[in-house]
Amino acid sequence: MSTIELSRGPVEYTVLGGDPEAAPLVLLHEGLGCIAMWRRFPARLAAATGRRALVFSRHGYGSSGPARLPRSPRYMHEEAHEVLPELLDRLGLHRPVLVGHSDGASIALLHAAAHPVEAAVVMAPHLFVEDRTLRGIEVARAAFASGPLARELAFYHQDPGAVFHGWSQVWLSPEFRDWDIGPDLAGVTAPVLLVQGDRDQYGTTAHLDAAQHALPGPVRRLELSDCGHTPHLERTDDVIEAVHTFLVDPALRQETRP
């Protein structure tokens, strides 16, 4: 694992090998995630697509430096428009394929709306605040308070309390209730693959519907049966096959608007 110093502090990262001429994959983790919590998915995806893959932990996660807490209701915009561009520039990675999960999927869409990307794969994205999401966070808060989730997060993060409370408090705050990134998506012209499980405890396919309506560029959609909030872990083979097919589909390039 390597570390790079950014304006907001150090970030841990790793780059998996692949074709240097192909657009690199950039993986963006969920609200409680980090490099290690992707497990073997990045390596398998890089191998299947033949591309390099950047995997990193955002500030406050894993072994990266601390985050600025409490988070602003616009924290995902800040990650998309300030932190991620700086990281990619420092590493010399241009026009990436963004692969985001949950919060990371929202960050991917926001980044793609304002910066050049080759494509975006968004798994279980949040476009707005849904009642199911808030109920799921309340369940997670109870699991953290009772111990199991706190113990699990301690395996992956230097400060599991800051990770959990920094994420849950902003989502459950009154200021966040009107958060909605739908209007931002008008700037996304790159191809987008939307992925959602039918048993996702943090969101419904209403987010995919909203994304399809708002995105002006080519869109593909994958709904997975008997799958919860982590398609890349629960249905790994299906997700990898779908991403590979999506990235080599010549029709997407023809549909992409200049």
Rank of each mutant, 00 (worst) to 15 (best):
F246G: 08
A114F: 02
A150V: 03
W179S: 08
E5F: 03
F56G: 03
T204K: 06
P218H: 08
L45I: 06
A162C: 06
A242E: 13
L153H: 08
R51Y: 10
G9M: 08
V26N: 13
P174S: 10
L45N: 06
E130I: 06
R141S: 14
L6D: 05
T236N: 09
A80Y: 03
V117G: 05
A120S: 15
C227Q: 05
G65D: 12
Q169W: 00
R68G: 14
P116V: 10
T189H: 15
D200L: 08
G161E: 15
V170P: 03
T3L: 14
A80M: 11
G197M: 10
S173A: 15
T189K: 11
D180W: 06
P42D: 13
A214S: 14
L233V: 02
Q158S: 14
G217H: 06
R39C: 11
P258W: 04
F128M: 04
R90K: 14
L91C: 14
Q212R: 15
V243P: 06
L172E: 11
M37S: 14
P116D: 12
A124P: 05
P66Y: 09
L194Y: 03
A48N: 09
P24E: 07
A22W: 01
E223T: 15
L32C: 08
S64C: 10
I137D: 01
G147Y: 05
F144K: 10
R90C: 07
G182F: 00
T236D: 15
L134G: 04
T133N: 12
A140H: 12
D200S: 11
H101P: 01
A47R: 13
P73F: 07
L28D: 00
L233E: 14
A112Q: 01
L6W: 06
F41H: 05
E223Y: 00
V122T: 09
L45Y: 05
P148A: 12
P116F: 04
A48L: 10
L247Y: 07
A108W: 00
V121E: 10
G197W: 01
F176P: 01
G147V: 09
M37N: 04
L172R: 06
G9T: 09
D237H: 11
R58T: 00
R90F: 04
L25D: 04
P231F: 06
S72Q: 11
C227A: 13
L27I: 05
L98M: 12
A142D: 15
V121L: 09
F128T: 05
R71M: 07
M1T: 11
T204F: 04
P42A: 13
P160K: 08
I181R: 02
H115V: 02
E79A: 12
R58W: 00
L215R: 02
W179R: 04
G65K: 11
R235C: 09
H126W: 01
G9K: 07
H81N: 14
A48W: 04
L54Y: 07
E175G: 02
G31L: 08
A124R: 04
D19Q: 09
P216H: 09
P24G: 10
T256E: 15
F56T: 01
T49Q: 12
A251L: 12
Y156I: 05
S64V: 04
R90E: 15
L16H: 14
L185I: 08
R51H: 11
G62N: 10
A23R: 07
P70W: 05
P191W: 03
A112M: 03
I107K: 00
L247V: 08
T14G: 14
P66Q: 11
D237W: 02
G136Q: 12
V170H: 04
L193N: 04
L252S: 09
T230A: 15
P258F: 04
H126V: 00
